[in-house]
């Protein structure tokens, strides 16, 4: 097997990372979150440097500096989520890791998903989590240690859990780093085809840009692109057609491409997502109701009790 990172180095880095994570899991007597974090960061840093070296050696260049900053913030705040003893802080650190993941999405040219991630995750899901954490909050004492519930202060089997998880991570990384050479890269023709497929469905946008650049007159319309996507076929009012070379900065945006993919190729997705969300909403309402009486007998009994008690308590049966 031909891995892009030296296997010995890979396993060493993963072992260091695993030790760091195991050390920083909350314990009864002490919490070595800082030390554990530093050890784990050493392991991850070692592996990232090795990956960067391998990437440079293959002549493929490094990811941008922003990638390294965002990846460190994301993984560091994920470590805080799983080791912080106070649930509210864990949720806040998770919001930080979502924001840095959204940054990584931006670097991957997925703006729509980046902002959807911030709106849905950080804006909706995590706020719900924060509400529930505050609703079910246990700490009635203000002081540091006594106020904390026992189940927050002590982790469960950190060594076993970390060993199991890092064996999984080792398997994953070995598979990724050895299989990555076999993933075929798209050819230049395919890259052009992606652009053409999207732009071909947006004659209005092409027309607007060509008008702005004064490449066509106002009474001419764009009827399509040629198959290589380098020029537009323009029709004048008298029926004559000509080809106009597209300006080089004209390209379909991520949102346009995603919209055509979502609604053109997978039109059922939105409907299925809607049904899933509706079911979840109904389920949540049923589950969180204070007195869920499902069977008819219980309902009848409750109605009878209400009816009986009404004359006595003067219509305030519900108290």
């Amino acid at each position: 097997m031909d891995m892009i990172v030296n296997p010995v180095l890979l396993f060493l880095a993963l072992a260091i990372g695993g030790v760091g994570v195991a050390v920083s899991v909350p314990r009864r007597k002490f919490q070595a979150s800082l030390i554990g974090g530093i050890i784990a960061a050493t392991g991850v840093g070692l592996l990232i440097v090795a990956l960067g070296g391998a990437s440079l050696a293959r002549g493929e260049g490094l990811p941008s500096p922003a990638f390294h900053i965002l990846a460190i913030i994301a993984l560091g705040s994920c470590l805080q989520v799983i080791t912080h003893r106070r649930p509210v802080y864990a949720a806040l650190y998770f919001i930080l890791s979502i924001l840095s993941t959204a940054g990584l999405y931006l670097l991957l040219a997925a703006e729509f998903m980046a902002f959807a991630l911030i709106i849905i995750y950080a804006g909706a899901i995590l706020i719900t989590y924060l509400f529930v954490i505050m609703l079910a909050s246990q700490s009635r004492v203000e002081s540091e240690e006594e106020g904390m519930a026992e189940y927050d202060a002590v982790g469960r089997g950190p060594i076993t859990a970390t060993i199991a998880s890092f064996i999984l991570l080792a398997t994953l990384t070995v598979m990724l780093f050895s299989g990555i050479n076999d993933i075929s890269a798209p050819t230049e023709a395919e890259v052009a085809r992606v652009q053409v497929e999207v732009l071909d469905q947006l004659p209005g946008k092409v027309e607007k840009v060509l008008h702005r650049e004064d490449l066509i007159s106002l009474n001419e319309t764009v009827v399509g692109l040629d198959e290589r996507g380098l020029s537009a076929i323009v029709e004048s009012p008298d029926g004559g057609q000509r080809q106009v070379v597209l300006p080089p900065d004209l390209s379909a945006t991520n949102t346009e491409g995603l919209a055509f993919n979502l609604l053109g190729q997978y039109p059922g997705t939105i409907e299925i997502a809607g049904v899933i969300l509706l079911m979840a909403m109904l389920g949540a309402v049923v589950l969180a109701r204070k007195f869920a009486q499902i069977d008819e007998e219980a309902k009848a009994a409750a109605a009878a009790a209400l009816h009986e008690s009404r004359p006595i308590s003067g219509g305030h049966a519900n108290g």
Binding site: I4, S55, F67, L169, F177
Partner: peptide, 21 residues
Amino acid sequence: SQGVLAHYLFVSAAMFTLGLV
């Protein structure tokens, strides 16, 4: 490039492992 893709996939795998731990 494949080398850059490997970086992102490693971050993803590490994040998944932290969630599992």
